[in-house]
Design a protein around this nucleic acid. Structure first.
Lengths: 347, 347
DNA sequence: AGATATAATAAACGCGTGTTTATTATACTA
DNA sequence: TAGTATAATAAACACGCGTTTATTATATCT
């Protein structure tokens, strides 16, 4: 069933049908009703492909999850609440606004080309990139893409670079982790903590860098001594975090508190400590990041920072929608506060 | 950049470019190389929309998650491991085979039309339906769709109906829950359990019905008495399950074991029991279904049935791929065993 | 070398729709 | 009522590609 059939049945020309569908003004109410009735009766839907080819948007956005090879060897990306929280929010909002959502995972270096491909071959109206890594910015060839893009977690330098070197409408959404970490470390200090360690994420994500940077700065600001052995390269990998914290715990020299780059590493750390007879939080306090569901369920439950997932996710879609419909970027940077959720892993 | 540009640069006609791209035989190696070089140099990709309009497949499959209104009031579908396990497997496999994945959630009754829409408007090559509810089969208008479809969890009657009334190539994948439940109840019986309760899922999903049916049959077969108060209508909702188990626990009359329609209800039941001072598994054993990640982390950890998620998920994509490429259905029903994972919530 | 078979390529059409331009029907003015 | 302005609709072209058919260049045979 195509528009020509509808036209024939309704006794009008194809272009009249098209004008009805696209809500043109110059078609009298009577004709419009007649055509609509036939469309309804035959359940006609315009072919999205012909439509797009003829210059219309295709109401499809791409959702790209970038995953560091370190954190994930078994392709179980969506077992990570960080990603699924955003997935929930974005799919919900996008579907609600009439967008199709094309989900892609980027696990290998080769996969980056899939992002380009989706834009060029699939002509998606816009894209959202989650879990941004530095190499992504270099590998995804934005110069070829003329579209709309929302990128999570990108530092100022890269953001500027992209905005200058890309034809796309570009928006970055960041969380203000730095502020949160600094406040929290001040609190820890006030409570008497003098040896605060950090279980780091990777250096090639803005989140990883920023969270560590904030930690470093605060160590200095508080006049604490930087202890290399208390800075653990967890690489966002719970497995690695467990091993290294376990190793440290065997040596019996531990800080009185650990900040972690994300919750899964924090949970691994708790496990490693408990397995070594260290009490949490009595001996060591642990603070995670991201507020994954598991942190609420374990014992002791995990103190962590919550991101406003739904707010950010739906905002991303709204921005994209604006870019797509209006064609112009109003604001290119949004920042959201994260919120400390106090639970049992800290006193 | 379109194929005409490539043709001009390479000094050939557009149809020659097309033949190179689509691997036609009647083009000499020299010409092919020349054209390929230009394509590579300019990073040309054919417009998928024009391609599809001209009759080609579009390498896109739809992934539809149907969620009962009862289980999920806050649209956090992807916090449920059952869904994300399949999501992981399917996205991984599909991307690996060169398919785009269109993710849709069906939470309201209205949403069913999105499934039709994706097939008709978006011309997706095939679809996978997860979390099938009875009404889905009636609401999704398969008679209008001529495509390829893999449906999870559908009873024989509905399967036959669909296969007879649909032009689509259709495949159903089921798990053999019945067998697993019966074996397990036999084991419980052998261990001395005489009062076995069930926390039911909804009646309008095959999984829900089948699991309950198996329970009923086994109660009879073992010569046990059917106790209505031990059959709890949990509706796949942890919240409801908690409330009802809590209520029952207050009355101090409990079975010695509970089967649950899924893990989240089982976990809720454990919480309700523990909150009432009932010991798990000493006083009451609990067995869940689906092997979600959380069940491994809680105390006591949850005995449950694991589904071969990755195997099933990738199988679904492979079947779809076969349907799409070959156009013919070889086998229309696949069944997979589920496996009991014994943990602490049973003795 | 001329005729014919065949390999290589180009031109033409169709896919279903949006949109621009051309045509026809209606209303209005003088 | 003839003439013009305007509202309503139809015809034509474009979108970028696959494919079928027509054309040209090359090779083979007698």
């Amino acid at each position: 069933m195509k528009s020509e059939d509808i036209a024939k049945i309704a006794g009008v020309s194809r272009s009249t049908v098209s004008r009805v569908i696209n809500n043109y003004s110059n078609v009298p109410e009577k004709t419009r009703e007649k055509v609509m009735r036939v469309i309804k009766e035959y359940n006609y839907m315009p072919n999205s492909y012909a439509r797009t080819l003829a210059g219309k948007k295709n109401n499809t956005i791409g959702l790209f999850f970038i995953i560091s090879g370190d954190t994930n060897t078994d392709c179980k990306i969506f077992q990570n609440d960080y990603y699924t929280n955003y997935l929930d929010a974005i799919v919900d909002q996008a579907n609600g606004m009439g967008y199709y959502v094309l989900v892609h995972t980027v696990t290998k270096n080769d996969d980056y080309d899939k992002v380009n491909q989706a834009f060029i071959e699939k002509r998606i109206d816009g894209g959202i990139i989650i879990g941004t890594q530095d190499e992504a910015v270099e590998t995804i060839d934005l110069s070829r893409i003329n579209s709309s893009l929302v990128i999570f977690d990108l530092d100022a330098e890269k953001r500027k670079y992209l905005q200058e070197h890309s034809k796309s409408r570009l928006c970055v959404i960041n969380t203000l982790d730095e502020k949160a970490i600094k406040t929290t470390m001040q609190n820890l200090y006030d409570q008497g903590h003098r040896q605060i360690g950090m279980i780091k994420g990777t250096d090639y994500t803005y989140s990883g860098r920023m969270r560590y940077q904030a930690y470093l700065e605060m160590i200095q600001l508080l006049g604490l001594e930087y202890e290399e052995k208390y800075v653990i390269e967890g690489m966002f990998s719970p497995k690695i975090a467990y091993q290294k914290v376990n190793q440290l715990a065997l040596g019996r020299t531990l800080p009185s508190a650990f900040l972690a780059g994300n919750d899964y590493m924090a949970i691994a750390a708790i496990n490693a400590l408990v397995d070594n007879g260290v009490r949490v939080p009595d001996d060591v306090s642990i603070i995670g990041f991201d507020n994954v569901g598991l942190g609420r369920q374990i014992t002791p439950s995990l103190t962590t920072f919550n991101q406003p997932y739904y707010e950010i996710g739906s905002k991303a879609v709204e921005i994209l929608d604006l870019y797509i419909r209006e064609g112009e970027a109003k604001q290119s940077l949004f920042e959201y506060d994260v919120q400390l959720i106090k639970r049992q892993s800290t006193q």
